[in-house]
Amino acid sequence: MYEIKTDIHTHTIESRHAYCTIGEYVAQAKKIGVELVGMTDHGPAMGGAPHFYYFLNLSAIPHMVDGVWILKGAEANVIDFEGNVDLEDRILKKLDVVIASMHESVIIPGTMEDHTNAYLNIVHNPLIDVIGHSGNPNFKYDYERVIAECAKYDTIVEINNHSFEFRRGSAANCKEIARLCKKYGTYIAVNSDAHFYTEMGVYGNSIEVLEELDFPEEKIINRNARVLLDFLSKKKGIRFTGE
């Protein structure tokens, strides 16, 4: 049984279609033994998402609150098939963790070649850390080609528990993505994509897939806070002190 003690993909009320504050996530994390929470509200191209000032001012929040680590990040929206996202580099550089995801409300799905090109450019962007919920069948891509490249560039591939229930047709794709991550030694992050605090740290569907594949635990980069923080510190030059 895998024990995953962090969740680096959650949404607060600032995303407008989510329903809790970061304080409520911290309280729940403390209650259920989650060591670290990632605040990754949607970038401004998503309807109702916060203004870019919100991301610039995340420095107001400490990295640790009541014994729980907080990563100050974003789920940036992919806005074209060149892999550009809706936050400027000057903002991305200030964030602890950046997830890049495709959403139908932001970009109309294209061809598999379009999606593959976008993801390859994302992988090659050193300011992006995680490819988000890429099992979405509306944005299918050349999994093998992209995931092999992720292994070379230490880009994390998300196994998104939310997708199994809310993105119809994602389950088989997520399993194939996880299989290829095992094949190529690509890091994964198992995340909830929570929109309410009771969803945080809930990974039943994802864990089932990983157990079936006998996925190597050492390639789950968010299995605990220290492993994740060490990885991000080395990659991004951030000093996580808990202050």
Rank of each mutant, 00 (worst) to 15 (best):
K236L: 00
Q28S: 06
K152P: 00
L95C: 04
E144N: 13
I188A: 04
G185K: 13
V98C: 01
Y143F: 15
Q28A: 12
D80A: 02
I220T: 09
V34Q: 05
G201K: 03
I188G: 04
G237M: 09
N205H: 15
K30M: 01
E217V: 13
G237I: 10
K219R: 14
S15Y: 06
I131Q: 03
V227W: 00
V78K: 02
Y141W: 15
C20D: 14
S101W: 03
L36P: 08
A100L: 06
F166D: 08
R179E: 13
E24V: 06
T155F: 01
P62Y: 09
A18E: 08
N205V: 00
V26T: 03
A151H: 08
Y19P: 01
N191Y: 07
G204L: 11
A151T: 10
P44L: 02
L127D: 09
R168M: 08
D193Y: 07
H51G: 01
Y141M: 08
I122W: 00
R167S: 05
K93W: 00
S163L: 06
Q28C: 00
E212R: 12
D142N: 15
G204R: 13
N77H: 03
Y143K: 13
V37C: 01
R179C: 00
I13R: 15
I108Y: 10
Y184F: 15
I107K: 07
N117Y: 06
K94S: 04
S15F: 02
L213K: 10
V202T: 12
V68W: 05
E144H: 10
G83P: 01
R16N: 14
L36V: 08
T6M: 10
H115S: 13
V68T: 14
N77R: 05
V26H: 04
T10F: 02
N205R: 15
I238N: 03
I147M: 08
N160C: 14
I122T: 07
W69M: 07
D193E: 13
L36S: 06
G38Q: 06
N160H: 10
V130Y: 06
G47N: 12
C150N: 03
R239Q: 13
T111P: 12
A172T: 11
W69S: 03
L58C: 00
L213A: 10
Y197S: 04
A18H: 08
G201V: 08
S134F: 07
Y203A: 10
L120P: 03
M102S: 10
P137Q: 11
H51D: 14
M200L: 14
I221Q: 01
K219T: 00
D80K: 02
H124F: 01
V130S: 06
N161H: 11
K5T: 08
G83L: 01
E158W: 07
D129L: 04
G83R: 03
E3F: 05
R90A: 05
D129H: 14
S233H: 07
A18Y: 01
K183Q: 14
N191K: 07
I159L: 15
N125R: 09
E165H: 12
E243S: 12
H63Q: 14
I122R: 00
D80G: 00
E14Q: 13
H42R: 11
A100F: 04
F52T: 11
Y25R: 09
E82K: 11
A29R: 07
H42Q: 11
D129F: 02
S192E: 08
T40S: 15
F215T: 07
N136W: 08
F139S: 03
Y153E: 12
H17K: 09
I207K: 14
G43I: 05
Y2K: 13
N57W: 02
C174Q: 15
S15H: 09
Y203R: 10
K175E: 15
Y19F: 15
